[in-house]
Write a protein that binds this DNA or RNA. Sequence first.
DNA 1: TACTTTCCCATGATATCCCATATATATCCA
DNA 2: TGGATATATATGGGATATCATGGGAAAGTA
Lengths: 151, 151
Amino acid sequence: MALFLSKTTNKIDQKGRVSLPAPFRATLSQAGARVILFRSPIHNCLEGFDPQFMEDMSARLDNFDLFSQDQDDLATAIFGEAVPVSVDDTGRMVLSEDLMGHANLSNNATFVGLGQKFQIWSPVEFDKRQQEARDNVKSKNLTLPKGGAHE
Amino acid sequence: MALFLSKTTNKIDQKGRVSLPAPFRATLSQAGARVILFRSPIHNCLEGFDPQFMEDMSARLDNFDLFSQDQDDLATAIFGEAVPVSVDDTGRMVLSEDLMGHANLSNNATFVGLGQKFQIWSPVEFDKRQQEARDNVKSKNLTLPKGGAHE
DNA sequence: TACTTTCCCATGATATCCCATATATATCCA
DNA sequence: TGGATATATATGGGATATCATGGGAAAGTA
């Protein structure tokens, strides 16, 4: 399956419209372009998914007890927060005030491909974040283990 | 599996186009020729991978929790920094200003096969690098360990 | 009506495609 | 062996398509 890769910065116009980078559009599953956005629980940024991928998230949630606090917290954080957004035929989507607020977006939005998902950042904040991520990978010596389980 | 071997130097034209050496093209997985480029974190050069390699990385990332700090750091460092590039039917790809800057590229690019990946260097800097690598192997008495794991 | 949201078209910049030429490597034949 | 012709590769430049973005018209809402 296609992946979201690389980063691009696009303008947000006065109507709150941003062009979803063309390569990102291409990795979305169908033509009837839709994206699921929500506010990242750990960063001041937005996260975007192919609607298809939400199914996988749902499957993962099944690993929790249906009535556990954790399951409830996660489900609320994920599905409750999810905002489906449509992409028009010039490739743009509209970001609500609320979403823009969470990510401190004003005039520019940096789209960052993260494989299965992508993130939307204020350009300045992402620079910091990127450096932080690099540092963490280095200092914690993070690698991608080959095998299955990693807990 | 096919490996990237040997080194070649090709011209970069005014549009930023370079021919990917034909042998390298041949080792890429499919016909819909694509390459993933990275800014090397340790050298002033670019690193190139078969897109298949990224798929493998993605599969490994699935072993991490979706919202864990580590997952996010890795994804940002790996997928966020990856630049997918397409190879046209005359075998050329386009290098962005940004990428060329990182590797100090201007008119020529030296492609160096490194097995699973290849590197793109400014010819002058690669000469230095090659000498350095030889010296390191000699002075540190570096050898190739036998088994798979190498910690 | 006043206001917001969606749709449609216009434009400049950039990237992609296509064809032509040059260079190199391989193949063939006398 | 040598020379000439093929085949593959590399490179140059112009035409074309795609993309990001701005503005306005139409449609929906209150």
